[in-house]
Amino acid sequence: MRKNKMLVAFACCVFAFLFLPLFIIAVTAFGGESAITFPIQSFSLKWFANIFTSGSFISSFKTSFQIALFATLLALLVGIPAAYALARYTIKGKNMIQSFFLSPTIIPGIVLGFALYRFIVLVMRMPVFYGLLLGHFLAVLPYIIRVVGSSLSQFDFSIEEAAWSLGCGKVSAFFKVVIPNITSGIMAAFMLAFINSFNNIPVSMFLTGPGVSTFPTNLMNYIEYNYDPTVSAVSVLLMAGTIIIMFVVEKTLGIASLAK
Protein backbone atom coordinates (compact mmCIF):
# COMPACT_ATOMS: atom_id res chain seq x y z
CA MET A 1 0.00 0.00 0.00
CA ARG A 2 1.32 3.44 -0.91
CA LYS A 3 1.59 5.76 2.05
CA ASN A 4 0.51 9.29 1.40
CA LYS A 5 2.77 11.49 3.50
CA MET A 6 0.60 14.56 3.07
CA LEU A 7 -2.41 12.64 4.33
CA VAL A 8 -0.56 11.32 7.36
CA ALA A 9 0.66 14.83 8.22
CA PHE A 10 -2.85 16.21 7.80
CA ALA A 11 -4.34 13.51 10.03
CA CYS A 12 -1.69 14.29 12.67
CA CYS A 13 -2.67 17.96 12.54
CA VAL A 14 -6.33 17.11 13.02
CA PHE A 15 -5.58 14.88 15.98
CA ALA A 16 -3.33 17.51 17.50
CA PHE A 17 -6.06 20.10 17.06
CA LEU A 18 -8.53 17.81 18.79
CA PHE A 19 -6.40 16.49 21.60
CA LEU A 20 -3.89 19.25 22.48
CA PRO A 21 -6.45 21.43 24.29
CA LEU A 22 -7.58 18.41 26.28
CA PHE A 23 -3.98 17.58 27.07
CA ILE A 24 -3.29 21.15 28.26
CA ILE A 25 -6.40 21.17 30.44
CA ALA A 26 -5.38 17.85 31.94
CA VAL A 27 -1.91 19.17 32.75
CA THR A 28 -3.16 22.44 34.27
CA ALA A 29 -5.36 20.49 36.69
CA PHE A 30 -2.22 19.46 38.55
CA GLY A 31 -0.75 22.96 38.84
CA GLY A 32 -0.08 24.59 42.22
CA GLU A 33 -0.85 28.17 41.12
CA SER A 34 -4.14 29.86 41.90
CA ALA A 35 -4.84 30.65 38.22
CA ILE A 36 -4.78 28.33 35.23
CA THR A 37 -1.26 28.47 33.78
CA PHE A 38 0.57 26.36 31.25
CA PRO A 39 3.14 24.99 31.65
CA ILE A 40 2.59 24.47 35.36
CA GLN A 41 5.17 25.79 37.84
CA SER A 42 4.50 23.35 40.69
CA PHE A 43 2.57 20.12 41.27
CA SER A 44 -0.52 19.91 43.48
CA LEU A 45 -3.67 17.85 43.92
CA LYS A 46 -5.48 20.52 45.92
CA TRP A 47 -7.85 21.43 43.07
CA PHE A 48 -9.16 17.90 43.07
CA ALA A 49 -9.70 18.18 46.80
CA ASN A 50 -11.43 21.51 46.19
CA ILE A 51 -14.10 19.81 44.04
CA PHE A 52 -15.15 17.59 46.90
CA THR A 53 -15.00 20.24 49.61
CA SER A 54 -16.82 23.02 47.75
CA GLY A 55 -20.11 21.09 47.87
CA SER A 56 -21.79 22.83 44.94
CA PHE A 57 -20.02 20.56 42.45
CA ILE A 58 -21.08 17.45 44.31
CA SER A 59 -24.71 18.51 44.71
CA SER A 60 -25.04 19.71 41.11
CA PHE A 61 -23.41 16.50 39.90
CA LYS A 62 -25.99 14.56 41.86
CA THR A 63 -28.81 16.67 40.38
CA SER A 64 -27.52 16.23 36.85
CA PHE A 65 -27.04 12.52 37.32
CA GLN A 66 -30.55 12.07 38.69
CA ILE A 67 -32.11 14.26 36.01
CA ALA A 68 -30.21 12.48 33.23
CA LEU A 69 -31.09 9.05 34.59
CA PHE A 70 -34.78 9.68 35.23
CA ALA A 71 -35.32 11.73 32.08
CA THR A 72 -33.70 9.00 30.01
CA LEU A 73 -35.68 6.21 31.66
CA LEU A 74 -38.92 8.14 31.19
CA ALA A 75 -38.03 8.81 27.58
CA LEU A 76 -37.34 5.09 27.06
CA LEU A 77 -40.73 4.28 28.56
CA VAL A 78 -42.47 6.60 26.11
CA GLY A 79 -40.04 6.39 23.21
CA ILE A 80 -39.82 2.62 22.76
CA PRO A 81 -43.58 2.11 22.28
CA ALA A 82 -43.69 5.18 20.02
CA ALA A 83 -40.81 3.90 17.89
CA TYR A 84 -42.48 0.47 17.79
CA ALA A 85 -45.79 1.90 16.63
CA LEU A 86 -44.06 3.96 13.96
CA ALA A 87 -42.07 1.00 12.68
CA ARG A 88 -44.82 -1.63 12.92
CA TYR A 89 -47.92 0.01 11.55
CA THR A 90 -48.74 2.11 8.56
CA ILE A 91 -50.29 5.15 10.11
CA LYS A 92 -51.72 8.08 8.24
CA GLY A 93 -49.26 10.98 8.30
CA LYS A 94 -46.47 8.67 9.50
CA ASN A 95 -43.74 10.84 7.98
CA MET A 96 -45.17 13.94 9.61
CA ILE A 97 -45.30 12.31 13.02
CA GLN A 98 -41.74 11.10 12.55
CA SER A 99 -40.41 14.54 11.72
CA PHE A 100 -42.44 16.01 14.56
CA PHE A 101 -40.74 13.64 16.99
CA LEU A 102 -37.34 14.56 15.62
CA SER A 103 -37.93 18.31 15.56
CA PRO A 104 -36.30 19.03 18.96
CA THR A 105 -32.95 17.90 17.51
CA ILE A 106 -33.27 20.42 14.70
CA ILE A 107 -34.65 23.38 16.66
CA PRO A 108 -31.80 25.34 18.33
CA GLY A 109 -31.46 24.33 21.98
CA ILE A 110 -31.89 27.89 23.13
CA VAL A 111 -35.28 28.13 21.43
CA LEU A 112 -36.41 24.89 23.00
CA GLY A 113 -35.11 26.09 26.37
CA PHE A 114 -36.97 29.38 26.11
CA ALA A 115 -40.20 27.71 25.02
CA LEU A 116 -39.99 25.29 27.95
CA TYR A 117 -39.22 28.18 30.29
CA ARG A 118 -42.35 30.03 29.17
CA PHE A 119 -44.45 26.94 29.61
CA ILE A 120 -42.99 25.03 32.54
CA VAL A 121 -41.79 27.87 34.76
CA LEU A 122 -44.09 30.78 33.94
CA VAL A 123 -47.36 29.02 33.13
CA MET A 124 -47.28 25.75 35.06
CA ARG A 125 -45.09 26.95 37.96
CA MET A 126 -43.64 23.50 38.42
CA PRO A 127 -41.06 22.79 41.15
CA VAL A 128 -37.56 23.33 39.70
CA PHE A 129 -36.47 19.69 39.84
CA TYR A 130 -39.58 18.39 38.08
CA GLY A 131 -39.43 21.19 35.57
CA LEU A 132 -35.86 20.23 34.72
CA LEU A 133 -36.85 16.60 34.51
CA LEU A 134 -39.71 17.36 32.11
CA GLY A 135 -37.50 19.63 30.00
CA HIS A 136 -34.74 17.06 29.72
CA PHE A 137 -37.27 14.32 29.00
CA LEU A 138 -38.53 16.33 26.02
CA ALA A 139 -35.01 17.12 24.88
CA VAL A 140 -33.85 13.48 24.84
CA LEU A 141 -37.04 11.78 23.62
CA PRO A 142 -36.18 12.32 19.93
CA TYR A 143 -32.85 10.54 20.37
CA ILE A 144 -34.59 7.52 21.84
CA ILE A 145 -37.22 7.38 19.10
CA ARG A 146 -34.58 7.83 16.44
CA VAL A 147 -32.11 5.23 17.67
CA VAL A 148 -34.65 2.62 18.78
CA GLY A 149 -36.59 3.26 15.56
CA SER A 150 -33.57 2.56 13.40
CA SER A 151 -32.93 -0.65 15.26
CA LEU A 152 -36.60 -1.66 14.87
CA SER A 153 -36.53 -0.90 11.16
CA GLN A 154 -34.11 -3.83 10.77
CA PHE A 155 -36.29 -6.12 12.84
CA ASP A 156 -38.22 -8.77 10.92
CA PHE A 157 -41.74 -8.44 12.29
CA SER A 158 -42.65 -11.92 11.12
CA ILE A 159 -40.62 -13.01 14.16
CA GLU A 160 -43.25 -11.33 16.29
CA GLU A 161 -46.02 -12.97 14.25
CA ALA A 162 -44.33 -16.32 14.77
CA ALA A 163 -44.47 -15.76 18.53
CA TRP A 164 -48.20 -14.93 18.31
CA SER A 165 -48.85 -18.07 16.31
CA LEU A 166 -47.12 -20.15 18.99
CA GLY A 167 -49.60 -18.91 21.58
CA CYS A 168 -47.97 -15.73 22.80
CA GLY A 169 -50.23 -12.73 23.45
CA LYS A 170 -49.30 -9.41 21.85
CA VAL A 171 -47.93 -7.72 24.98
CA SER A 172 -46.01 -10.75 26.11
CA ALA A 173 -44.58 -11.27 22.60
CA PHE A 174 -43.32 -7.69 22.65
CA PHE A 175 -41.29 -8.39 25.80
CA LYS A 176 -40.26 -11.94 24.92
CA VAL A 177 -39.31 -11.50 21.31
CA VAL A 178 -39.09 -7.85 20.25
CA ILE A 179 -37.23 -6.30 23.20
CA PRO A 180 -34.49 -8.97 23.44
CA ASN A 181 -33.66 -8.38 19.78
CA ILE A 182 -33.31 -4.60 20.02
CA THR A 183 -31.35 -4.42 23.29
CA SER A 184 -28.25 -3.02 21.60
CA GLY A 185 -30.39 -0.27 20.10
CA ILE A 186 -31.95 0.46 23.49
CA MET A 187 -28.52 0.55 25.14
CA ALA A 188 -27.23 2.91 22.48
CA ALA A 189 -30.29 5.13 22.85
CA PHE A 190 -29.83 5.14 26.61
CA MET A 191 -26.18 6.21 26.38
CA LEU A 192 -26.88 8.88 23.80
CA ALA A 193 -29.84 10.32 25.71
CA PHE A 194 -28.04 10.17 29.05
CA ILE A 195 -24.97 11.98 27.74
CA ASN A 196 -27.14 14.56 25.97
CA SER A 197 -29.09 15.29 29.11
CA PHE A 198 -26.01 15.35 31.28
CA ASN A 199 -24.24 17.84 28.98
CA ASN A 200 -27.27 19.96 28.24
CA ILE A 201 -26.87 23.68 28.88
CA PRO A 202 -29.49 25.59 26.85
CA VAL A 203 -32.50 23.84 28.38
CA SER A 204 -31.03 23.70 31.90
CA MET A 205 -30.06 27.37 31.82
CA PHE A 206 -33.71 28.40 31.56
CA LEU A 207 -35.11 25.80 33.92
CA THR A 208 -32.70 25.83 36.85
CA GLY A 209 -33.71 27.94 39.80
CA PRO A 210 -32.78 28.78 43.36
CA GLY A 211 -30.96 25.94 45.07
CA VAL A 212 -31.09 23.60 42.07
CA SER A 213 -28.48 23.72 39.35
CA THR A 214 -27.15 21.13 36.98
CA PHE A 215 -23.52 20.24 36.67
CA PRO A 216 -22.77 22.09 33.40
CA THR A 217 -24.57 25.26 34.48
CA ASN A 218 -22.78 25.16 37.82
CA LEU A 219 -19.46 24.77 36.01
CA MET A 220 -20.26 27.77 33.82
CA ASN A 221 -21.16 29.91 36.80
CA TYR A 222 -17.98 28.88 38.56
CA ILE A 223 -15.81 29.89 35.61
CA GLU A 224 -17.48 33.29 35.49
CA TYR A 225 -16.22 34.17 38.97
CA ASN A 226 -13.14 31.98 39.46
CA TYR A 227 -10.24 31.26 37.16
CA ASP A 228 -8.57 28.56 39.23
CA PRO A 229 -7.69 25.04 38.08
CA THR A 230 -10.70 23.44 39.83
CA VAL A 231 -12.45 23.49 36.45
CA SER A 232 -9.51 21.64 34.91
CA ALA A 233 -9.64 19.08 37.69
CA VAL A 234 -13.37 18.59 37.06
CA SER A 235 -12.66 18.13 33.37
CA VAL A 236 -10.03 15.50 34.10
CA LEU A 237 -12.46 13.56 36.26
CA LEU A 238 -15.18 13.76 33.61
CA MET A 239 -12.79 12.58 30.92
CA ALA A 240 -11.68 9.70 33.11
CA GLY A 241 -15.32 8.77 33.71
CA THR A 242 -16.09 8.90 30.00
CA ILE A 243 -13.08 6.74 29.17
CA ILE A 244 -14.15 4.14 31.72
CA ILE A 245 -17.73 4.07 30.38
CA MET A 246 -16.51 3.79 26.79
CA PHE A 247 -14.18 0.99 27.79
CA VAL A 248 -17.05 -0.91 29.42
CA VAL A 249 -19.32 -0.33 26.42
CA GLU A 250 -16.61 -1.47 24.03
CA LYS A 251 -16.05 -4.65 26.07
CA THR A 252 -19.75 -5.49 26.37
CA LEU A 253 -21.49 -4.15 23.25
CA GLY A 254 -18.81 -2.74 20.99
CA ILE A 255 -18.54 0.97 20.21
CA ALA A 256 -20.02 0.32 16.78
CA SER A 257 -23.40 -0.36 18.37
CA LEU A 258 -23.58 3.28 19.44
CA ALA A 259 -22.96 4.51 15.92
CA LYS A 260 -25.71 2.39 14.33
Binding site: D156, S158, I159, E161, A162, A163, W164, S165, L166, G167, C168, G169, K170, A173, V177, P180, N181
Partner: peptide
Protein backbone atom coordinates in the same frame (compact mmCIF):
# COMPACT_ATOMS: atom_id res chain seq x y z
CA UNK B 1 -53.87 -15.41 16.44
CA UNK B 2 -52.44 -16.66 19.72
CA UNK B 3 -55.56 -18.67 20.55
CA UNK B 4 -55.73 -20.49 17.20
CA UNK B 5 -52.94 -23.01 17.73
CA UNK B 6 -51.92 -23.11 14.07
CA UNK B 7 -48.33 -23.71 13.09
CA UNK B 8 -46.89 -21.19 10.67
CA UNK B 9 -43.70 -21.43 8.65
CA UNK B 10 -42.63 -18.07 7.28
CA UNK B 11 -40.77 -17.26 4.11
CA UNK B 12 -37.98 -15.68 6.19
CA UNK B 13 -38.28 -18.57 8.73
CA UNK B 14 -38.68 -15.90 11.47
CA UNK B 15 -36.65 -17.86 14.01
CA UNK B 16 -36.00 -16.10 17.30
CA UNK B 17 -32.42 -14.86 16.86
CA UNK B 18 -31.79 -14.55 20.59
CA UNK B 19 -32.73 -18.15 21.38
CA UNK B 20 -30.91 -21.34 20.48
CA UNK B 21 -32.52 -24.12 18.47
CA UNK B 22 -33.78 -25.96 21.55
CA UNK B 23 -35.44 -22.84 22.98
CA UNK B 24 -36.85 -21.86 19.61
CA UNK B 25 -38.61 -25.19 19.36
CA UNK B 26 -39.62 -25.17 23.04
CA UNK B 27 -41.11 -21.65 22.80
Amino acid sequence: VHKRNFGIVFQSYALFPHLNVYDNVAF
